[in-house]
Nucleic acid binder design. Structure first.
Length: 516
RNA sequence: GGCGCUAUCGAAUAAGGGUUUAGUUCGCGGCCCUCUCAAGGCUGAAAUCCGGGUUCGAAUCCCGGUAGCGCUACCA
């Protein structure tokens, strides 16, 4: 019988969640939902040194903003579940609160001969590393060196027992088997083989803080939580042989999850992976939400920059994956239907801020007018309270083709809510000359006689201008200047129809008196 | 340095040995539309990293080189 698909996103709360992390979470979520399975959130906070307050909340809020709600591990209030229940049978979902679980698994491995106690101090290992480095070599705790180091393989039994009982500065290390070919399969990369001699004896558990390292906690929890697929970043690929060996040592091969390693997100230009500095340098966010660190340093967020979560998710999904068709716009639900690990691209994906903007523009265009109005009212408040939904809706519909973000609406539409207080000097110099000052009053009278005052009738102004042989560009741009204050903006007839005859005449009259 | 992963226009990608004159989207250029700015339509430039091999035939399979990326902690 096919097991129920269960995947997890297991971030470390060491800072704000990077957009690459969001993508990993998204792919996990899409995979789980498509299979009708579970998406679990687990917090991997086994490094007490690097814990950052607020990071956990940030991760969960980011996922919620994206529309990604874990089936397990997070409750309705967005809190990590600490007490087991029917829906959250594996609680707690925070590894620091599961610390009691791991020691016995590490010791089981020692008993079975797959691991050993290591008493080397941090300092002695650092010294060995420094020494090796001086000779342009790398010190590795492995099959070659463990026989010369301070551990339960080299020390007499009674000395091992004494140190175990009396000291705290020891760890349990995995004993990598010698000269074995570890054969692995990756859902994205295919078959991979590595010789075990290139691996090192990783620390599994630390007596000092009684906490496991990532490797042990990860394997034990994935096993306990019945995870069927591990979809994670490429930075874990070098650890995969160790993880295979760990499953083998525990005798869990039959229920071992399948693995899929995702390539990393690369910076838009130059070398290396996408970092916060690239965002600052090139002017785009690398985090889903705004984040202020302990030093008060601010990192911008996609949410605060005016991105729609749907656009952000859509854009992220396409960074290293494609449906194989030419459709590019997908809702989260549609992505669930078409996503497949087989179509995930193996190579690293360079992030393209222009394409991200394009996605947002597409969503801005598709957004229902009523929704656009509601969004705008929420951000503008009293400033536009006096205007009807119909009026605001017409304004926004006229402007939506001209902006990438809803945050641009305030400035782009300001003249619809307030008459211009001044006129762009360059535009005045360019248009308010020759016979224009003499013509405009005639145009004004024509406009005053228009009835009804709709776009169709307003467009007869063009016929008037043409019939009289007046300069179309200058007249129209002068009208625009009086309406907007600048010589850029939507079509004059469109703007007039929305502003209404009274307001249009008022602005033209004001323009004439101001410039005379 | 060692180990691993990856390699198609500037970017994201398609093409799963012959349907390829290598397609699409973003960006860039031009033209059209036009009262400006957009949007839109049409259009242009632009790529299979290099070298071997397998094959009747290679972007596609294999090997080598090169480059990029990752890992090389009592971090994750």
């Amino acid at each position: 019988m096919e097991r129920r698909r269960r995947v997890r996103f297991a971030p470390s709360p060491t800072g704000p969640l990077h957009m690459g992390g969001v993508r990993t979470a998204l792919y996990n979520y899409l995979y789980a939902k498509q299979a009708g399975g579970d998406f679990i959130l687990r917090i991997e906070d086994t490094d007490s040194q690097r814990f950052v307050p607020g990071a956990e909340e940030y991760i969960i809020e980011s996922l919620r903003w994206c529309g990604i709600f874990p089936d397990e591990g997070v409750d309705e209030n967005g809190k990590v579940v600490e007490v087991a229940s029917e829906r959250h049978p594996h609680a707690p979902y925070r590894q620091s609160q599961r610390r009691g679980i791991y020691r016995k698994y590490a010791e089981e491995l020692v008993e079975k001969g797959y691991a050993y106690y290591a008493f080397d101090s941090t300092e002695s290992l650092a010294a060995l590393r420094a020494e090796a480095e001086a000779q342009k070599k790398t010190f590795t705790y492995n099959w070659e060196t463990r026989g010369t180091l301070c551990n339960s393989l080299t020390l007499p039994t009674d000395e091992v027992a004494r140190r175990l009982a009396e000291t705290r500065d020891w760890t349990i290390r995995f004993k990598i088997p010698e000269n074995r070919t570890v054969a692995m399969d990756d859902l994205i990369r295919g078959h991979i083989e590595v010789n075990s001699n290139t691996l090192d004896d990783k620390v599994l558990w630390k007596r000092a803080d009684e906490l496991p390292t990532y490797h042990l906690a990860n394997i034990v929890d994935d096993h306990l939580m019945e995870i069927t697929e591990v979809i994670r970043g490429e930075e874990w690929l070098p650890s995969l042989p160790l993880h295979y060996l760990l499953y083998e040592a525990f005798g869990w091969q039959d229920s071992q999850p399948r693995f899929a390693h995702l390539s990393l997100l690369l910076k838009p230009d130059g070398k290396g992976k996408l970092s916060k500095r690239d965002g600052d340098r090139l002017g785009f966010p690398v985090f889903p939400l705004r984040w202020v660190n302990a030093e008060g340093e601010v990192s911008r967020g996609y949410r605060e920059d005016g991105y729609y979560p749907e656009a952000f998710v859509n854009m992220l999904a396409f960074l290293g994956w494609n449906p194989g068709t030419e459709q590019e716009i997908f809702s989260l639900d549609e992505l669930v239907k078409v996503f497949s690990l087989e179509r995930v691209v193996k190579s690293g994906a360079r992030f393209n801020p222009d394409k991200a903007k394009w996605f947002n523009q597409e969503y801005l265009r598709m957004r229902p007018t009523a929704q656009l109005v509601a969004d705008f009212r929420a951000s503008e408040g009293a400033r536009i309270a006096a205007f009807s939904d119909d009026y605001v809706g017409r304004v926004l519909d006229l402007m939506r083709e001209r902006v990438h973000f809803p945050t641009e609406f305030r400035e782009a539409t300001s003249f619809f809510f307030e008459a211009p207080a001044s006129y762009d000097e360059a535009a005045v110099a360019k248009f308010w000359k020759d016979d224009i000052p003499a013509l405009i009053p005639q145009v004004r009278e024509f406009i005053a006689g228009l009835d009804p005052f709709d776009k169709e009738h307003i467009e007869t102004v063009e016929a008037l201008i043409r019939e009289n042989g007046w300069p179309m560009g200058k007249v129209m741009n002068t009208l625009r200047l009086f309406l907007v204050g600048k010589s850029v903006g939507p079509g004059v007839a469109d703007m007039m129809a929305i502003l209404g005859k009274d307001e249009v005449l008022k602005r033209i009259d004001k323009g004439i008196t101001t410039l005379q």
